[in-house]
Design a protein around this nucleic acid. Structure first.
Lengths: 141, 141
DNA sequence: CCTTTATACTTGAGAACGCAAGGATCATAG
DNA sequence: CTATGATCCTTGCGTTCTCAAGTATAAAGG
C-alpha cells in the first residue's frame, strides 16, 4: 500500500516538474540517462527497453519522440541487421546535462528533507532487492 | 532510480496476477479495498479519489467500470446534492474478500522471500514518510 | 436576493503504455 | 540449401489515466 501511494505521489511530483521545465517525461529522462552512461552513449534498443522496464513497443514510440526532437539518433549494427542502436546526439547530451541538474535538485528537495543519508542508503538497499535482477548500475539518481 | 525500477517491476507482476485471476486492475483492487474498510462500506467519490491518488475524472471512469460489473453502486447524498457516494455491493464485498486472499499471497511471495519482518517494518516506515500526508490507514497490505 | 467563489462530478481529447500480430534477420539442425 | 525457431523491431488497437472545459450545487458577502 505505502509503496503504491509513495510511488504515485512521487512520480506525479517529479514528472510534472521535469515536464514543466524541460518538456521531458520521467521515462524520457530515464532513457536519456541510460544512454548518457552507456558506452559510446549508445545502446541497442532492446537493452534500453529492458533497463528502463518498458516493452519493445514502448521504446519504439518513446524513441520516435526523442528522435523528432533531435535528442537521439539511430545507427545500424553491422554484425546483425536486426538491431538498431539508439545514440545520444550532441543536443541530447546537452539536454540531459541540463535536466539532470534540476532533477537532482528536485529529488534532493523531496528526499533530503525526509531522510538522513543513512536512511537513504537503507531505502536504496531494500528497494534494490525487489526487481528480478535488472540492470541499473553506474548511476546514483 | 531504484524506486522507479522497483515500482515498475512490482506493479507489473502484481497487476498481471490480479488481472489473470480476478479480472481486476491494481487500481480497481485499491478502490475496492478502500471501500471495504470505509464506514458503511461507502465513500464520497472525491475522498476515494484522493485516497488512491487518482484525479476526479480517473475515479469517475474507474467506478463506471466497477458499476457495470455490479461491484459498486451509487447513492445520492441528502445534505449535499453535489456529492455521490460509491457503495460496495454484496457482490463487491464477496469479490474483494476473494481477491484479497490471493493478492496477499502474491505479496507474501514477492516480499516474504526478500525481507525479514524487521526489514519490512523499516521499509514501510521509510516509504510512509514520502507522500504529503495522505490517508491510507486501517489496512496493512 | 444576487453575485462570486469554491466544490463535486462528468465528458472530450489526447498521452503513455501494453499486448498481439507481423516482417525481417539470424542461427542451427537436418 | 532449407526448414525451424528465436530475436529485434514496428504497427494497430485497446486500456488507463490526465488535463481542460463544462454543468450543477453550495456557501458567503454585498
Amino acid at each position: 500500500m505505502r509503496f503504491l501511494r509513495a510511488h504515485a505521489a512521487l512520480t506525479r511530483e517529479l514528472s510534472s516538474r521535469l515536464e514543466a521545465v524541460h518538456e521531458l517525461t520521467l521515462s524520457d529522462f530515464d532513457v536519456l540517462v541510460q544512454l548518457y552512461y552507456a558506452e559510446g552513449r549508445r545502446m541497442r534498443r532492446i537493452d534500453l527497453a529492458r533497463s528502463v522496464l518498458l516493452t519493445a513497443s514502448g521504446i519504439t514510440r518513446l524513441l520516435d519522440g526523442l528522435e523528432s526532437c533531435g535528442l537521439v539518433g539511430k545507427e545500424r549494427c553491422d554484425s546483425d541487421a536486426r538491431v538498431t542502436y539508439a545514440v545520444l546526439t550532441k543536443a541530447g547530451v546537452r539536454k540531459i546535462e541540463e535536466a539532470r541538474e534540476s532533477h537532482l535538485a528536485d529529488i534532493e528537495e523531496l528526499f533530503g528533507s525526509r531522510f538522513s543519508p543513512d536512511e537513504r542508503e537503507q531505502l536504496a538497499e531494500l528497494l534494490g532487492r525487489l526487481p528480478l535482477a535488472h540492470t541499473a548500475e553506474a548511476c546514483s539518481e
